[in-house]
């Protein structure tokens, strides 16, 4: 079949889903079920202590028409860390959007650290992502999102963008944290404004929800000192929220790593190369 490249791109859109369930067995969090198909995979590297789940998108990035569904269900009492194998890249969409749905759940007294690596948005990318963590009872979580607009080192600028990124945490079905980002062409054009991004190209939000979250404020604030990063933290309603932004992805990544280390008191997921 002879098709122009743009048509090919539309035909080659990828689809993937990976769903992991973990249960408590003899006091330890163990894999209970793993289902995966298409371009999504989940791997559980052997690590000591709290188990890690690493999601990966084997399609090599997001483009128009792609669909990615990931989930990690932790049963009562389970503790786990989940991350992504690499940064997720979103390329020029060719007009249609990529849809990413992430649905984690944490049972009573469980805890999830959802620490995906950064999302790099290229010019013309179109991504609608929703991340939802459903907590039960006294469960808690740490949720991170890092976004980078193009790559500064490569001289890339982003002028066209359709990015909506809704992050939610629910407790017993009731929303307790909703952080909906929305960057379209107009917001990107206004990005230099000091109430928008102040010209920054990389930004991150880290939220802790659950027992002890508000008490972590001083520890988090004390770790927000990486040069070239602007950051602040606030604690309220059983939550700690940290926002960070920088001119480029690398200082931001270092800052995120530093504050995570301080708050968690342990090493970052192995796949994070920092």
């Amino acid at each position: 079949m002879n098709l122009p490249p743009s048509s090919l791109r539309r035909l080659e859109h990828s689809q993937g889903e990976a769903h992991v369930r973990m249960k408590l067995q003899s006091g330890a969090t163990r894999l209970a079920d793993l289902r995966q198909q298409g371009s999504a995979k989940a791997i559980l590297p052997r690590v000591g202590g709290v188990p890690e789940v690493v999601f990966l998108n084997t399609s090599g990035g997001l483009t128009g028409g792609d669909r990615l569904d990931l989930s990690l269900a932790l049963e009562g009492g389970c503790h786990a860390v989940a991350t992504t194998q690499t940064a997720e890249r979103a390329y020029d969409s060719g007009g249609s959007e990529a849809v990413v749905a992430i649905r984690h759940s944490v049972g009573q007294d469980g805890w999830l650290d959802w620490l995906p690596q950064e999302t790099i948005l290229y010019d013309g990318s179109s991504v609608t992502r929703s991340t939802e963590i459903a907590l039960t009872g006294r469960a808690g979580c740490l949720m991170l999102e890092m976004v980078v607009l193009g790559r500064a080192a490569m001289g890339e600028t982003v002028g066209r963008l359709a990015f909506t990124d809704r992050r939610s945490v629910l407790r017993d079905g009731v929303p307790v944290l909703i952080d909906p980002l929305s960057f379209g062409d107009e917001a990107i054009a206004a990005g230099a404004g000091s109430a928008i991004l102040g010209g920054a190209r990389a930004f991150a939000t880290l939220a802790m929800v659950g027992p002890g979250a508000e008490d972590t404020l001083d520890v988090a604030r004390g770790a927000l000192d990486i040069l070239g990063v602007e950051a602040a933290a606030s604690a309220f309603d059983g939550k700690l929220v940290v926002r960070m932004l920088s001119h480029d992805g690398w200082p931001l990544r270092r800052q995120v790593a530093k504050v995570l280390n301080a708050m968690r008191g342990r090493a970052l997921p192995r796949v994070w190369q920092i």
Binding site: T164, P180, L181, I196, L197, G198, A232, R243
Partner: peptide, 17 residues
């Protein structure tokens, strides 16, 4: 509902200190 006023939100956090 969606926001791009990242530094506006950050400003309200910075104001605390």
């Amino acid at each position: 509902i969606g926001s791009a006023a990242f530094r506006g939100d950050l400003a309200s956090m910075q104001h605390e200190t």
